[in-house]
Simulated scan of single mutants.
Amino acid sequence: MALVVFAASFVLLAVITIERWFKQRRRKKNAAFEREALPVLRAFSEGRAKEEAVIKVLLKNRSEAMNILILFAHGMEPELRPKLAPIFEKLVVLGEEVLAIEQGQVKRRLMAAERLGFLSNDASAAALVKALDDEAPVVRLCAARSLSIQGRTDAIKPILRALDLPAELDHRREVETLSGYGESAVPALLSVIESSRRKYSSNAIVAASRALGMLKAEEAVQPLIKLLQHPRDGVRLCAARALGDIGDPVAISPVAALADDPSWRVRRRAVKAMGKLNADEQVPKLSEALGDSSWWVRFAAAQALYSFGSSGISELERVQRTSSDKNARGICSEVLEEHAVLDTN
C-alpha cells in the first residue's frame, strides 16, 4: 500500500512539474512574441511599416497575436483604431467568429463578441446585435461595447433594452459603453429621455441620462430638467447628476428645488450638482441643507459651499459659530477641519 501511495504521489508530482514547465515555456514564448509584435504594430499605426510586414509577424502566433492586437487597439485613441481594421480582417475569420458567438461556450462567445467589434462590416454588426439577446449578461455587455467601437448608433436603443438588467449589471458599465460612442450617440440618447415613460424603462432612462451628462451634451439640458419631476427617485437623481456634469447655469434653479426632495439620495445629488454648477446664489439653500436629517446631504452641502471659495467658506464659518443646530455646526467643523480652514489647536 505504501508503495502504491508513493508511486501515485510521484506520478502526481511529475505531472504538476511537467505542467508548470509547459506553462513557463508558453509564457516565455508569448513574452518573446509580444516583444517582437508590439514594435511592428506601433510602426504600422504610425505609418512606418507596411501591412504585409505586420501580418507576417503576427501569423507566427495567431492566437496570441489576437490578444496583443486587441489590447493594442484598446490602448489607442478611438478615432485611430480604424487604422488597424486591415490587420484584424486578415487575422479574424468572420465565419468562425459568427458561428462561435451563436453556438460556443460562454468564454468563446465572449471572445467572439470582442473580436467582431474590430471588423467594421454589416455581417459582424448583425451578429453583435443578435448577441444582445444572449442569455449571459457579460456577453451582452461585450457585444454592446463592440457595437460602440464600430460606431453603430442604430444599436443604441437595442443596447439600452438588452442591458436593462440592474440586478446583474452595474449601470456604470452600461453608461461607459454608451458614452464610448461620443457625440454621435446624443440624438439617440435624447430620443430615449424625451420618449413617453411607457416606451423605455426607468433603468434605460437613467443610463441615457448619465451618458448624456458624461458627454456634456448641452442640447440635453431642457429634457433633463423635465426629468427632475419624474416619479422615480433614481431618474430624478441621475437627471440632477447629469445637469451638474453638463454645467449649464440655466439648470441651477430647477436643481436647487430638489434640495427639498423626499428622498435623501436625491437631495444629496441635488446639492452636489449645485456645487458643480457654481451656484453661489444658492448659498442660503445650501446653508439650510447643512441641517438636513441625513449626514450625507449635510456633508455634500458643506462641500458644495466650500467649493464656492470665500463666500461659501464664510457661510460655513458663520453657521459653525452661530447655528443652534448641532448637526449643522458639526458638519461645518468637519469640512473646515478637513480643508485646514478651522484651527483645532
Rank of each mutant, 00 (worst) to 15 (best):
P39A: 04
R108A: 10
K23P: 00
I101K: 06
L128A: 04
A143K: 04
E77F: 14
R152W: 07
K272F: 13
W264P: 12
A155V: 03
L116R: 10
R298K: 06
V15E: 05
R267G: 12
A7S: 05
Y306T: 05
L305K: 00
F299A: 11
A43M: 11
K23G: 01
V98R: 02
R62N: 09
K226F: 10
V4Q: 07
S120F: 14
L38F: 11
D154P: 07
L190Q: 11
L336T: 02
R236C: 07
L80C: 07
S294W: 10
N67C: 13
S209V: 03
L258Y: 01
F118Q: 01
V15P: 01
I159S: 05
M111Y: 14
A273K: 02
A188M: 08
R20P: 00
E52K: 14
W21I: 11
L128E: 00
I313R: 06
R161M: 07
K107D: 15
A328M: 03
A144M: 15
L147T: 03
R42I: 10
V11A: 02
F118H: 07
A340D: 14
L38R: 08
E19G: 15
A279P: 09
S120R: 10
L165N: 10
A143E: 06
R329V: 10
K272M: 15
Q222H: 08
A14Q: 14
A300T: 02
S324H: 08
V93G: 01
L69D: 01
A270C: 09
K226D: 09
M111G: 10
F72S: 02
E174A: 12
A279T: 12
Q229N: 04
W21P: 02
Q105H: 13
S9G: 15
I156M: 12
F72E: 02
L58H: 04
R42W: 12
V106D: 15
V297D: 01
L243K: 05
K199F: 14
N278G: 08
I55N: 01
E334R: 11
L41T: 00
H230F: 14
S307D: 10
P254R: 12
